[in-house]
Write a protein that binds this DNA or RNA. Structure first.
Lengths: 151, 151
DNA sequence: CTTGGTGCAAACATTTTGCAGCACA
DNA sequence: TGTGCTGCAAAATGTTTGCACCAAG
């Protein structure tokens, strides 16, 4: 799977509902917007912050949605391709994902003492990265910053 | 396993050979500096940049060292604890590691078009992170930055 | 002897895939 | 009737662990 860079530079249209983006993507490749996919998207939208495939499945089950693990993973992959969510690497154990609302997805402040992860904005960082790329004749495609801190 | 933050603030003694650091750590907990562990350390030292457990094992095998997968993983864990190497999250597939020479381990420039990863230094970034932490009453423990770029 | 280390193979956790049956145009 | 979707279970990865045997003090 691809590196899934955070903070992609291409800004998205903000106003269009995620559901519409997803449906358009599905339609574009002859796929269907099924109830299961709707449930997954719905659950993701109501999660704030990061989520894992596992937790997402559990949550769906708790809400009475009968969705299989396979469908969750398959839907996650579709939503990654659609640019609705992106992969975030937090630890080496499992993949974490986060919703990409029109906004530039943020940098992360990781509290290593309590394990919480907070999304923050580091002003000027994108410019710093852009300059580094420019100095090498490269184009910035995104960045990912994690700050580790404790009390 | 713990998050393994990069760019730890505590500077290390630079001059002491890694082998000595490793032996001291092993001795401190009644463990032994075996030939297998020496071979793993030696191979890691000669790799420049990132490596994966898998590739490390393959390399050892090619050099005629008969080391098992289990020993490679176990040795990697020991070296993580000793602070000789650290885990870097590059993609969701497998763990990557890099050697920590007395230097502060650098930030990463990831060429998404060709898959190469280059270690770079982003001046001032540690200060930016420190200020963000300070503003929240937290102590900076490290950071990790990946910049994604293409030609 | 006792302690720790090794290799192997089995166990694990996460993610992907093959397949038979289902749903809907 | 064909196309895609689903659930299930099996497979595929990457990593860890249990165990029997080996080596060194």
């Amino acid at each position: 799977m691809s590196p899934a860079p955070a903070n992609l530079e291409a800004p998205l249209e903000i106003v269009e509902p995620l559901c519409a983006i997803f449906r358009r993507k599905l339609k574009a490749e002859g796929a269907k917007y099924t109830p299961e996919r709707a449930h997954v998207l719905d659950a993701i939208i109501r999660i704030d912050g990061l989520f894992e495939a596992d937790a997402l499945l559990e949550r769906l089950r708790k809400e009475g949605r009968r969705v299989s693990k396979a469908t969750v993973y398959r839907t996650i992959k579709l939503m990654l391709e659609a640019g609705i969510i992106q992969r975030v690497l937090v630890d080496g154990e499992q993949a974490h994902y986060q919703l990409v609302y029109g906004k530039t997805p943020g940098d992360l402040l990781v509290r290593i003492d309590e394990g919480r992860v907070e999304e923050i904005l580091v002003p000027g960082l994108a410019d710093i990265c852009r300059n580094i790329c420019k100095a090498r004749g490269l184009t910035l495609k995104g960045h990912r910053l994690q700050i580790f801190a404790s009390a």
